[in-house]
């Protein structure tokens, strides 16, 4: 059974590129355009991994991350934060809130795949 991954980002072109990349690698891909949608989809679809952008409308990535970690049912869901703000404080804030990994935009597709696989234990 293929792993299910949710991409939460409000930048259409980034979503398109990551979606294409992950599908090619055989993952099942879901897409969310803002924080609230992301949270709803995680609860409904139970993806194995969420790629979470920080700067999103309605609810930012940190808040989504915090909400996910507050839900014990979702503890198995891995979270990989993606952000265009590469400051150390942001990284540690994400990790502090319970994210499992953190990548700074722009990233290399190879590294992203490697990180995704690592988090999914593959």
């Amino acid at each position: 059974m293929s792993k299910k991954i949710l991409i939460a980002d409000d930048e259409q072109n980034i979503v398109i590129s990551i979606e294409f990349l992950l599908r090619r690698e055989g993952f099942e891909v879901l897409v969310a355009g803002d924080g609230e949608e992301a949270l709803a989809k995680v609860r409904a679809e139970r993806p194995d991994l969420v790629l979470l952008d920080v700067m999103m409308p309605k609810m930012n990535g940190f808040d989504v991350c915090q909400a996910l970690r507050a839900d014990p049912d979702l503890s198995a869901t891995r979270i990989l934060m993606l952000t265009a703000k590469g400051r150390d404080t942001e990284v540690s804030k994400g990790l502090g809130l319970g994210a499992d990994g953190y990548m700074t935009k722009p990233f290399s597709t190879k590294e992203l795949l490697a990180e995704v696989r690592k988090l999914l234990g593959m």
Partner: peptide, 24 residues
Amino acid sequence: SSVTHELRTPLTSIRAFSELLRDD
């Protein structure tokens, strides 16, 4: 920080698409 965010976002797409094209 705003400017870098705005610069990084298009760069992310450009790099991702370029790598996809290159690798496949």
